[in-house]
Design a protein around this nucleic acid. Structure first.
Lengths: 226, 226
DNA sequence: GCCCATGGTAAACGCCTGTTTACTCTGGTG
DNA sequence: CACCAGAGTAAACAGGCGTTTACCATGGGC
């Protein structure tokens, strides 16, 4: 019910101002960003950050929760656009000025790994399992021998390519600008649509050989085949 | 012409022993690993590392060069297996005990970004441009409207998925064990072969809409479309 | 008018980092 | 033997980090 639900700079409590600065700075520079830098961004002292949140780890946890919640909500808004590849909604959000810092934060969190990365990806997988099943039922999507493994692969392809774009970008401030995301997403869209629509290999030799080698698609959750 | 050309533990000069320890430790823990840890692994003092290499940055540079050179050479050995997706040879190498620390190192370097990551990926792209063109000419590979963009996407899909597996692995020592790579690679192989062989979307609507929206495939090297 | 809770800070603390300094040991040479 | 070059190290150093401590201001309740 807030009039400007995301990152508004002006009339915020100290706590919210620090959190805002932390999300932006973590997204820009990664989680090695120092408390003093964040404090400076927020216009307070480093001691004040610790006094407000208890510790850097607690600040990080609150940022995680904050960003995660907003992204989760926003997914419902753009869920109509979820007809494409799993993970593509990240790209849609990154094109919106107000969501861009949050997407940067999410990518940094995935890059850093840990529980946050795992649970975020798991959440995307669970989401995708639903609407991909719908796509298959509607005849829009080719069925797979292991739906979850395919979804993890496709999400990994999208996120992984974005991660690579992030890691190989020389200018650390580029991640804040729309131009960076336009460039990264445009480079991805055509080849992804090509490969997903027209395939990449013309004959089935490799797939059939692998299917022969591996007796059956796995039934456990990890997609591991013996 | 060395009898054991890669990482042999025993009869090495101090310089080689430190470099060996550094490659292994950087690959396991990333480049934040401390000089003291590496020195301890190599059985020397931290001062000795600096005295031998000049600085941590110089040690890192020598490790980069060393690993890069070996991977580059080894690619020629497994080039017969390069019939599959771009970047897949990384997976082949990771299954070999002697190359596994080097692959871990490369992934950490890509994760860390910077010049090393860029030049390594560029090198893979250049390689793939050649043999994918052959595949297209032989009728084994579907042609693309922008070959380089497709290759970057496919390489990013493979490397990105491995990066995600690395980042979401809770046990930091798992990366040294064959089981981790088997798990990660097995989870990737089936869905990749499926999508590359059978496609993912059944109709051309999205691709055609995008092709209509974007006037022409780009001719510049970056794959950027306006 | 007093007083205490609240919110904030400057300065210091302890720890870890890469690096430097001063020193010791060892082995080969004139 | 004398001696010097090279390899190696322990200990100290400077700087950055997250965090703690002691302190200051401000403002509402008795």
């Amino acid at each position: 019910m807030r009039s400007r639900p995301l990152l508004s700079e002006g009339d915020l409590s100290t706590r919210a101002r620090i959190r805002h600065a932390a999300v932006a700075r973590f997204g820009r520079d990664g989680f090695d960003a120092s408390l003093r830098t964040i404090a400076h961004d927020a216009g307070v002292s480093a001691a004040s950050v610790v006094k407000t949140f208890g510790s850097k780890e607690a600040l990080r946890a609150e940022c995680d929760e904050y960003v995660f919640a907003i992204i989760r909500d926003s997914k419902r808004s753009v869920i109509a656009a979820q007809s494409g590849a799993p993970g593509a909604f990240i790209g849609q959000l990154a094109r919106m000025d107000e969501y861009r810092p949050l997407i940067a934060y999410v990518l940094r969190a995935i890059q850093a790994g840990g529980d946050m990365a795992r649970s975020f990806i798991d959440h995307m997988v669970e989401d995708a399992l639903g609407y991909i099943a719908d796509g298959v039922a509607a005849g829009l999507v080719v069925p797979s021998r292991d739906e979850e493994a395919r979804i993890r692969f496709l999400i990994g392809a999208t996120l992984g390519n974005l991660l690579l774009a992030l890691a190989t970008e020389p200018d650390p401030s580029a991640i804040e600008r729309a131009e960076f995301w336009d460039r990264a997403l445009n480079a991805l869209t055509l080849p992804a649509l090509e490969v997903y629509t027209e395939g990449f290999l013309t004959d089935r030799a490799m797939l059939d050989a692998y299917l022969l080698y591996v007796p059956d698609p796995p039934t456990d959750s990890s997609g591991v085949v013996a």
